[in-house]
Every structure is written in C-alpha cells, then in structure tokens.
C-alpha cells in the first residue's frame, strides 16, 4: 500500500513540520517514507508545500502527481492542488481560512475550523498538529503512538511543547468524531 499526501499552506503554518512528523512516524513503524519540500522563493507569502509518501514497498518518485490525501491550510493551496486530488481522495481543509464552496463532489471533504480549535488551547502554532489529529482519526496511515513518538523526536526535550501537541492531536481527533 502506497499513500501519497500533499500538505500545503502559507509558510509559517507548520506545513513542512507536519509532513516531517508524519513521515517520521511511518519510519518509526519501519515503513518507507519520502518527504519532498517546496524550497523556493514561494515560501515567502505564497504557498509552501510538501509531498509525503508512505509505503511498505520501495518508493519510486518522491514527486506526487496525484495525491490520495490533500491537507490545505489556505485558499491558494486548495486552488493549486485540488484538481490533482485522486477521485475518492481525502481533502482536509482549514475552514477558518477557506470559506469557498468545494466544487468537487467526487472526494471526501473534512472541514476543520483550525483557528477556532487552536484557540481552545491558546496556541495558534498548533493548527498543523490539530490537522494531524484529524488525519489519524480518518485514516489508518500510522498509529497515534508513532506520531507522539515522532513529535517527541521533533521537539527534543521540550516537555511543555510535547504536552501541548498531544492536546492538539486530541482536539483534531475529537472534532472529526463529533462532526
């Protein structure tokens, strides 16, 4: 099974970090993973994105032409990548910033009001991990425990930040369960 995920948003929304934490969680489960970031001038103001592929098999190209999952944190990212999302693919959007109606009806749409959700734990930097929580609830890509371990590795010994991100994961999960 190969799953291809594109994560996209403004630079600063934690797009690249979300990708790294996800890819690393898969590797902690002894799966193969690739993470390919956008690293151009487009990082400033425009969209930043990363392509993440998770597979038990060897991975060919790290470039994704048609993702199975798209996580879009802002409207420009949605416009850029939605046409490429596979039929029956999963679209997770940040509905705090994306107010437009999603025209495609052949996909599964999950809306997360990330700004409002992050306000519950008084930290807007956690929107990426809240989205990760939703992804964990919606798919069986990786185990929650692997993501927690991956978060621990990413934030080294900063215990308070690790605890905050655990709360963020739960927020995302709970929101999907309720809606």
């Amino acid at each position: 099974m190969k799953t291809q995920i594109i994560v996209a948003g403004f630079g600063g929304q934690g797009v690249l970090t979300l990708g790294v934490i996800l890819a690393n969680a898969a590797v902690l489960e002894d799966k193969n993973a690739t993470w390919l970031p956008s690293y151009g001038p487009e990082m400033r103001g425009g969209t930043a994105n990363c392509h993440v592929i998770i597979s038990e098999e060897d991975i060919g190209s790290a470039v994704i032409s048609q993702p199975d999952i798209l996580i879009a944190f802002n409207h420009p990212s949605l416009e850029k990548f939605l046409p490429r999302l596979k039929k029956n693919g999963l679209l997770i959007i940040n509905s705090s910033l994306i107010k437009e109606e999603i025209i495609r009806k052949d996909i599964k749409l999950v809306s997360l009001p990330l700004v409002e959700l992050a306000a519950k734990i008084q930290n807007q930097k956690t929107i990426n991990i809240i989205a990760m929580g939703a992804l964990l609830e919606l798919t069986e890509l990786v185990k929650t425990s692997s993501v927690v371990d991956s978060i621990k590795q990413n934030f080294k010994d900063k215990q308070d930040i690790i605890e905050l991100n655990k709360k963020a994961l739960e927020l995302g999960r709970e929101h999907v369960k309720k809606n």
Partner: peptide, 10 residues
C-alpha cells in the same frame, strides 16, 4: 541535484 539534497527519506 537539489531535490535529492532537500528531500528526506528513510
């Protein structure tokens, strides 16, 4: 190439 240098992989 730049892509190989920038990408992360297992």
């Amino acid at each position: 190439d730049g892509y190989l240098g920038q990408m992360m992989e297992s």
